[in-house]
Amino acid sequence: MLSEFAFVGVLIVFASLLPIAGLGFAWLVRPKKPNPIKKSTYECGLETIGGTWVQFRAQYYIFALMFVVFDVEAVFLLPWAVAYDQLPAYALIEAVIFIAILALALVYAWRKDALRWS
């Protein structure tokens, strides 16, 4: 009994050989003449002022949050969608309730302006 993922395993090995081969070959043929100016951080030729860790807006986090919630809901909807033809009619109602609660989350975020990029 061989897992259906066996091919994915073989492919991972080969897929990681591709960048290794590419980078390795480039390492052989490319010029290597580093100097401090080349290795400085790119900022239109000027040195970076202050640290890289400027304060980011929590807005980014809210989008990631919405994504996590919808992703989990999608994972629970997929078995429903696969089994849908074998399920009795009330499965539609169950799923509609599920999706309605999901839509409620979207409406809440929308009303609270959490989705606005200001």
Binding site: A15, L23, A26, R30, K38, S40, Y42
Partner: peptide, 26 residues
């Protein structure tokens, strides 16, 4: 592309910096 010099910024986190493009291709 092959013959271009490959620059890693001095302040970069070398290991993660090299892993990222490999992960993208894989």
């Amino acid at each position: 592309m092959l013959t271009k010099e490959d620059i890693t910024p001095a302040k970069a986190d070398r290991i993660v910096f090299n892993l990222a493009p490999m992960l993208a291709v894989v």
